[in-house]
Amino acid sequence: MTITELITVILLVVGCFFFLAGTLGVLRFPDLFSRLHALTKADNLGLGFIAAGIALHIASPWSALKIFFIWLFTLLASSTSCYLIAKFQREQHKPQNGKEQE
């Protein structure tokens, strides 16, 4: 096993750990806002690690750039959608002070 492969393995394992953390957060946290927090931060960090590991494994500058852009777009999309969902939820359920309803 070369040193590059070792770094790839470590990066992927760290990424998987963050994905697991995000999923557990989505499952276990009590309300939507904390779930949003878990999902949009932990998962994107995990994706960043996995993207870095795979970019290292493929080792071509063009695809590394593409993977970097994928990560960048995901960051952008998930941060804005986090904001939009949180704002939407707050406007929809203002009267029920925290009580959830469908």
């Binding site: 990424g15 994905f19 995000g22 999923t23 989505v26 939507l32 779930r35 949003l36 999902l39 949009t40 998962d43 994107n44 995990g46 994706l47 996995i50 993207a51 795979i54 993977i67 994928i70 995901t74 998930s78 959608s81 969902i85 939407f88 939820q89 929809q92 359920h93 959830e100 309803q101 469908e102």
Partner: peptide, 21 residues
């Protein structure tokens, strides 16, 4: 809520991108 369910499709999206990469 519907927002919760939508949130999970976001989770699918991110994890799906990771699987694809």
């Amino acid at each position: 809520t519907v927002a919760d369910r939508l949130l999970t499709t976001q989770l699918f999206g991110t994890t799906g991108i990771a699987i694809l990469i």
